[in-house]
Write a protein that binds this DNA or RNA. Structure first.
Length: 198
DNA sequence: ACATCGATCTACT
DNA sequence: GTAGATCGATGTA
């Protein structure tokens, strides 16, 4: 069995600045998330994110490390995937540094590549319904709990690459939380139709 | 052990 | 606009 030649990206310099969840949430807008899976390749343009910070009452890491959230306490550049509401997965990119417990929730993508595969995974035809929400996006990209802890540096099939810079970004409050509701830690590309909620 | 709640989505009214 | 699905993590005893 031959090893498939694959470009390897060796360090974090190929990723946006992940030094803080807050700045990374804004910086990730306009990047492409790519998943090269056994089923095929899908890619989407990141149009909506949320920052979950250290000492943030709405963050999974607020009450300290646990089996579920330990990836968030690890090094940046990895995926933190969790299961919620008994049926959905949500995808985060770990930021900051080991021990801090910060991440950026990827809330919505504009489908760019592998759209037929996204339609099949989602059992939906309309592009606007493929990835315009955190759990929709996870399903369209074929991401589940087995990808918790996957690297974004290519070796696990995930990569990020820069796309067209957003013209304008809107900063507002996060969705679906009951704590720290006043923080303006959600970001989206202004007027992009693939954003989950205005 | 048990109860509660959730970084959601869908289908229905 | 709102109810229901469905289960893992967490808090309370």
């Amino acid at each position: 069995m031959t090893t498939k030649p694959k470009a390897t990206i060796s360090d974090l310099s190929s990723l946006p600045d992940l030094s803080s969840a807050l700045t990374a949430a804004a910086a990730l807008l306009g990047w492409m998330l790519i998943h090269d899976s056994p089923d095929g390749l899908t890619a989407g343009y990141i149009v909506e994110t949320e920052a979950y910070m250290a000492d943030d009452a709405a963050s999974h890491t607020f009450r300290g490390e646990s089996a579920r959230n330990k990836i968030m306490f690890g090094p940046p550049g990895y995926l933190y995937v969790y299961f919620t509401y008994g049926m959905h997965y949500c995808v985060n990119i770990v930021t900051s540094k080991t021990g801090n417990g910060e991440a950026v929730l990827i809330r919505a993508l504009q489908p760019m590549d592998g759209i037929e595969l996204m339609r099949k995974r989602r059992n939906k035809q309309v592009d606007l319904e493929l990835a315009s929400g955190p759990a929709k996006m996870a399903q369209a990209m074929g991401i589940n709990k087995t990808h918790n802890g996957a690297s974004l540096l290519g070796k696990d099939g995930f990569t990020l690459k820069p796309g067209p810079a957003p013209k304008q970004i809107t900063q507002t409050t996060r969705v679906g939380i009951s704590q720290a509701k006043n923080k303006l830690w959600r970001f989206y590309i202004t007027d992009n139709p693939y954003v989950s909620k205005k």
